[in-house]
């Protein structure tokens, strides 16, 4: 296919995504694509530190929860718009990332990973513990008072869809820019060999921390949108290790350290979850989860570099190469 053809096809696809909520009236389909967007966003955020920087974090649900809880609690208790509360949540998540990152980045490999799991669990327990403030295990339901942009409350799914799409596009553009910017190259250098990077003058702790903080802010923003889309949050739902793993799985399945990997991964993982649940969910044995797990294993075993590697040899697609291939450590 020539360039014009590709652009035409791509424009068509872009129009399909934009017009999707107009064409379908079924909230579930909109909700599903919305979840793809949210997971793709979180995957892109996670990829900054987990993929480009190769620091496997399994504690990202903490930032998701901080975003979600900040916006929801500020609205429910103090009637502050989630547009403001969301920013507060992102700032708090950045703060948490600094607090977690400073000591944890002294650790490497599996030790760093374990430390993030521990930090995530501590956060979940804190959300459970301060029940006077967070509602504890009871969670916080959002009462619905009719459509209002200031409270991010809509009876239709479409506004959430466009907000999630907007967030995804913004994060995508940011990550794409970072990939090429200095920080992207520093991160790639750290991924390839942290000691070598340090010996060349890269302040690895600082670079990792910046990536981690940005990654936290992106995850928190997704958390805010999730909370208002679903209308109920509790520590087991938004601060669980499960969610942290899901975020990482999205990227690992799609292609770690690539720009399109998280988007592809989110599409596959979310749709796979929904399809297996839809067709096998009424069987009583949890067959849907078994099949879901098996498919993920197949993907990871057959394509360790992620599904995005399927497109590697397609000359026409110009899909991204591994960042590592264009590292110039100077």
């Amino acid at each position: 296919m020539n360039r014009t053809g590709r652009i035409f096809l791509a424009a068509l696809a872009g129009a399909a995504v934009l017009l999707f909520p107009v064409v379908t009236t079924t909230p579930y389909y909109i909700h599903t694509v919305l979840m793809v967007f949210l997971f793709a966003t979180m995957g892109l955020g996670w990829n900054l530190i987990g993929g480009y920087g190769a620091q496997l974090s399994l504690g990202h649900s903490t930032f998701f929860a901080i975003g979600a809880y900040s916006a929801v609690l500020l609205m429910v208790n103090y009637e502050i718009s989630p547009l403001v509360g969301g920013i507060v949540g992102m700032v708090l998540a950045c703060g948490a990332a600094v607090v977690i990152g400073l000591p944890c980045f002294r650790l490497r490999g599996p030790y760093f990973c374990l430390a993030t799991i521990a930090a995530g669990e501590i956060a979940r327990i804190l959300f459970l513990h301060f029940q006077e403030f967070t509602g504890g295990a009871n969670g916080v339901p959002l009462p619905f008072h009719g459509d209002d942009i200031l409270t991010l409350q809509f009876s239709s799914k479409a506004p959430y869809y466009y907000l999630a799409l907007g967030l995804l596009v913004a994060v995508f553009v940011l990550v794409r820019w970072m990939e090429k910017a200095k920080i992207g190259r520093y991160l790639a250098a750290i991924r390839e060999d942290q000691d070598a990077a340090e010996s060349l003058g890269v302040r690895t702790d600082r670079v990792k921390l910046i990536a981690y903080v940005l990654s936290a802010a992106i995850t928190a923003a997704a958390g805010v949108l999730y909370a208002f889309t679903v209308g109920y949050i509790d520590p087991d739902g938004v601060a669980s290790l499960n969610l942290s793993i899901e975020i990482a799985v999205v990227v690992i399945v799609g292609g770690i350290g690539t720009l399109w990997g998280p988007v592809l991964g989110a599409t596959v993982v979310v749709l796979l979850t929904e399809l297996t649940n839809m067709y096998l969910g009424s069987l009583r044995s949890g067959a849907s989860l078994v099949l879901y797990g098996l498919l993920l294993i197949v993907v990871v075993v057959a394509r360790p570099k992620g599904l995005i590697s399927l497109f590697d040899r397609a000359p026409a697609a110009s899909l991204p190469k591994q960042v590592g291939t264009r590292v110039h450590v100077a």
Binding site: L9, A10, L12, A13, A16, V17, W260, A317
Partner: peptide
């Protein structure tokens, strides 16, 4: 490429 992937989605 962005839009192509959107087509996949």
């Amino acid at each position: 490429s962005w839009l192509t992937s959107t087509a996949v989605v």
